[in-house]
C-alpha cells in the first residue's frame, strides 16, 4: 500500500487534515457551531467555482471564500447578539437563522458561477464541481500534499495558541468578557481559522462531506469525556483513525470512494460513542 505514491501523498495530507479537523471540531461542537461549519463547507463550492471561472488556482478561491465567510459569520452572529443575554446556547440558536439565510445566497452564487463557467468554457465544469464537492484525496500530487500538510500544521498551531482563552470564552462567555478576554475578536479569529480548516479538508474529503470529519469525531469525543485535554486528544485521534481507516479501506476496495469511506467510519465512531454512554 505504501509503495504507491498517490497513497503516500494521501496519507501525508490526510493525517494532518484529520488532526486539524478533529481538534478544531472539538471547539466547534463545544461552541454549538456545527451549522456554521456546515455553512463554511458549502462556501467552498462557489469559492472554488469562482476561481475556476476567473481562471486562477482553485485553492486561492477556496481559501479566500471560506476565510471571508468564517470571519463574516463570526462577526455577524455575535454582533446580532449584542442586545441578547450572553448564554452560548441561545447565542448559537440565534445564529441558526442568520447562517441559514447566508447559506441560500451562497448556494445561489454557486449556481451563478457554474453557469458562468459552463458558458465561458466548454466542458470541465462538471469535473471541477465534482472535485470540489467530493474531494479527490487520491489525486493529490506530492507538492500539493506537502502544502496541504503544512497549512494543516499551521492551523493546528494557531488553534493551540488560542486554545486557552477560546475555551474560557466558549464555556463562560460572560465571565471571560468580564475578565478582559476579547471574546468577540476570539470568535471571529476562530471562525476564520475554521475557514482555513474547511478549505483544507475540502481538498481531502470534499465540501459536501467535510462536516463528517469536522463534527462526528469531535461529537463522539464530547460524549465520552468532558475533560478538555482528553477530549481534544480523543477528537484528534478519532479523526485520524477515521482518515487512516477510510484511506486503507478505499485502497482495498476500488469501488469505494475514499471520502465516503472516511466519513462513514467517522459517523460510525460517533454512533458507537452514543451507544457506549
Amino acid at each position: 500500500m505504501f509503495s504507491a505514491e498517490f497513497m503516500r501523498n494521501a496519507l501525508l495530507a490526510g493525517t494532518f487534515i484529520a488532526l486539524a479537523c478533529g481538534v478544531s471540531g472539538w471547539f466547534v461542537v463545544l461552541r454549538g457551531q456545527v451549522f456554521a461549519g456546515d455553512a463554511l463547507s458549502h462556501v467552498a463550492f462557489p469559492g472554488a467555482l469562482a476561481a475556476a471561472a476567473a481562471g486562477i488556482d482553485q485553492r486561492i478561491g477556496l481559501f479566500a471564500a471560506t476565510i471571508a465567510a468564517g470571519a463574516a459569520i463570526g462577526a455577524l452572529g455575535r454582533g446580532a447578539l449584542a442586545g441578547r443575554d450572553g448564554r452560548s446556547a441561545s447565542a448559537s440558536a440565534a445564529e441558526d437563522t442568520a447562517i441559514g439565510t447566508v447559506f441560500t445566497v451562497i448556494l445561489g452564487l454557486g449556481v451563478f458561477f457554474l453557469t458562468l463557467l459552463s458558458t465561458s468554457s466548454a466542458g470541465g465544469a462538471g469535473i471541477q464541481g465534482a472535485r470540489t464537492l467530493f474531494g479527490s484525496v487520491f489525486g493529490l500530487g506530492a507538492g500539493e500534499a506537502r502544502l496541504a500538510a503544512g497549512v494543516a500544521i499551521a492551523a493546528l498551531l494557531l488553534t493551540a495558541a488560542i486554545a486557552r482563552p477560546l475555551l474560557f470564552a466558549s464555556v463562560f462567555p460572560d465571565v471571560a468578557a468580564a475578565r478582559g478576554v476579547r471574546t468577540r475578536l476570539l470568535s471571529i479569529a476562530f471562525a476564520a481559522l475554521l475557514g482555513v480548516v474547511a478549505a483544507e479538508a475540502t481538498q481531502a474529503v470534499g465540501a459536501l462531506l467535510l462536516l463528517g470529519l469536522l463534527a462526528a469525531p469531535a461529537a463522539a469525543a464530547h460524549r465520552v469525556t468532558a475533560a478538555p485535554l482528553a477530549g481534544l486528544a480523543l477528537a484528534g485521534a478519532l479523526a485520524l483513525g477515521a482518515m487512516w481507516g477510510g484511506l486503507t479501506l478505499a485502497y482495498a476496495l476500488p469501488w469505494l470512494p475514499p471520502s465516503t469511506a472516511v466519513v462513514l467510519i467517522a459517523v460510525s465512531l460517533y454512533y458507537a460513542a452514543l451507544g457506549w454512554r
Binding site: L208, L209, G212, A215, P257, T260, L264, A266
Partner: peptide
C-alpha cells in the same frame, strides 16, 4: 443541549451525503 443536538444533526447529514456519494 443545543450543541449536542446540532452535532447529532451534523452527523446525520454527513452520513446521508456520504451514502449519496457512494
Amino acid at each position: 443541549s443545543w450543541s449536542e443536538r446540532s452535532a447529532n444533526t451534523g452527523a446525520v447529514q454527513a452520513l446521508a451525503l456520504a451514502m449519496g456519494f457512494l
